[in-house]
Amino acid sequence: MTRLAHLAAVALLALIPLNASADDWQQRPDWADVFAEQKAVNGTLVIVDKREGRAGRFVVNPGRANERLSPASTFKVPHALFALDAGAVDDEFEVFPWDGTERDVPAWNQDQTLRSALRYSTVWVFQRLANQIGREREQAYLSEIGYGNARVGDDVGTFWLDGSLRVSAVEQVDFLERLYDMALPFAEADQRLVKDIMINEADRDWILRAKSGWDGQVGWWIGWVERPSGPVFFALNLDTPERLADLPKREAITRDVLRRLKALPAPE
């Protein structure tokens, strides 16, 4: 059986939500005040703490935690793995020449690498990669890793932005756990590279790896904090009725909760 034939055989599995219920998780209504302080009424936060002596699975708004939404630019994390595996990009040093088209985000208007494209969430780079990978292979990868509803839709250049592809906060954390454990069906070197380009901050005893996303309606922040005692995974999404004004709330809420858990240090 060919690789693509095998993937087609398991494609239906992607339609079944991973960790289909968050009801058995520990609900944290005490964290709802963090959302309230930020005036973020509609949202969810999923935390999986795997540190020694602190292990637990926590959730704010479990119903929302299982609701599949467009991943927006958080999909750039698995998409980078797809691109590396497909040979659409060689490494983090390969340069994607800017096409000269002025876009709304100034950081996009320059040559890019895989590292900068993830950092600046450069849509045109990943659209270029998606076209190189192709619809059939994108579909195969999504099915193989069981990512959300695993649907590419009609447009290979926008499926992670236009609502075709949808994933829940619980499923986001499941994917991140597998990436952390190097348990995804990709070369170990490629998984290590993607984890490296996800780094947002680091200090002597912790590393924060994360990716934001926004489709104009819902904002995401996903990732994990690595500590010597183990990782703490997180996935937050919230509605953004005030659009750009709501985007800082993603990190503000998540960081506050991670500080309460002593996963991140208190601000100096």
Rank of each mutant, 00 (worst) to 15 (best):
A8Q: 11
L12D: 14
A14P: 13
P17R: 00
L18H: 06
A20M: 00
A20D: 05
D24T: 06
R28N: 01
V34W: 09
K39N: 12
G43H: 07
L45V: 04
V46H: 02
I47S: 03
R57H: 10
V59I: 02
N61Y: 00
P62H: 00
R64M: 06
S70T: 09
A72P: 09
S73L: 03
P78I: 02
A80Y: 04
A83F: 10
A86Q: 11
V89C: 07
E94F: 10
E94C: 06
F96Y: 15
D99L: 03
E102R: 13
Q112W: 05
L114G: 08
Y120T: 11
T122H: 12
V123D: 10
Q127A: 04
R135D: 02
L142I: 07
I145S: 12
R151M: 15
G157D: 15
G157P: 15
F159D: 13
D162G: 11
L165N: 14
V194F: 10
K195T: 02
D205N: 14
W206D: 04
R209I: 03
S212T: 12
D215Y: 02
W221A: 00
G230A: 01
G230L: 00
F233L: 00
L236Y: 09
L238T: 00
T240R: 09
P241Y: 04
L247A: 06
I253F: 11
I253K: 13
R260T: 05
A266D: 13
E268F: 01
